[in-house]
Simulated assay, not measured.
Amino acid sequence: MRFAPLRHRPIPISRNQQLDVVNRAARYFSHHFSEEISSEALAHSIGVSAEWLDLCFDHCRGKTPFQALQHFRLSRLFEGIAQQPNSTLQQQVHSCGLASVMAANRLFEELFGIGLAPFRRICRRAAADQLLHRGQP
């Protein structure tokens, strides 16, 4: 049996209420991104059902809560590598709640257009250049 895509299902709450649900979920992501997060636990923590959560994300962002969480984690990974390019990719990936370096690399490359290792090399060079320029007037 095949179901219609979520976007074709009506949602009987206002756009502001939908955005409020999505924003509450985003705040939850920012505090718990390094942990394992299930849709049910997320929905429960922000006071809605998992179905409402899915519908709100679909209507407001065009993606699932899991996709939004992955995007958030990848953005944090980008920031973490840029700020601390000398830490290992394994440490960085783990601290962002991502499963493995290999999976994170594939997702990172899809989102940012560059793999983890080349991005870290660029960040290392940038950090070295900053140190070099600090020593000169």
Results as ranks from 00 to 15, higher is better:
residue 3 F to E: 01
residue 4 A to H: 01
residue 6 L to E: 02
residue 7 R to M: 09
residue 8 H to E: 05
residue 8 H to G: 01
residue 9 R to S: 01
residue 9 R to N: 02
residue 9 R to D: 06
residue 10 P to K: 06
residue 12 P to K: 08
residue 16 N to I: 07
residue 17 Q to E: 14
residue 18 Q to I: 00
residue 22 V to G: 09
residue 22 V to E: 03
residue 23 N to S: 09
residue 27 R to H: 08
residue 27 R to F: 02
residue 30 S to P: 00
residue 30 S to N: 11
residue 34 S to L: 00
residue 36 E to G: 04
residue 37 I to A: 03
residue 42 L to P: 02
residue 44 H to V: 06
residue 45 S to D: 15
residue 49 S to C: 03
residue 52 W to K: 03
residue 53 L to Q: 07
residue 54 D to M: 10
residue 56 C to A: 15
residue 57 F to W: 03
residue 59 H to Y: 10
residue 63 K to L: 14
residue 65 P to E: 07
residue 69 L to F: 04
residue 69 L to E: 06
residue 70 Q to T: 15
residue 71 H to D: 15
residue 72 F to R: 02
residue 72 F to M: 11
residue 75 S to E: 15
residue 76 R to W: 02
residue 77 L to M: 12
residue 77 L to A: 11
residue 78 F to H: 15
residue 79 E to M: 07
residue 79 E to G: 02
residue 80 G to T: 14
residue 82 A to W: 04
residue 85 P to G: 11
residue 87 S to I: 14
residue 88 T to Y: 00
residue 92 Q to A: 13
residue 92 Q to D: 06
residue 98 L to P: 03
residue 100 S to E: 10
residue 104 A to H: 03
residue 104 A to M: 07
residue 106 R to H: 08
residue 110 E to C: 06
residue 110 E to Y: 03
residue 111 L to T: 10
residue 113 G to Y: 13
residue 113 G to F: 09
residue 114 I to K: 01
residue 117 A to Y: 06
residue 118 P to N: 13
residue 119 F to V: 08
residue 120 R to V: 14
residue 120 R to M: 11
residue 121 R to D: 12
residue 122 I to N: 01
residue 125 R to H: 12
residue 125 R to S: 07
residue 127 A to T: 11
residue 131 L to T: 09
residue 133 H to F: 10
residue 136 Q to T: 06
residue 137 P to C: 10
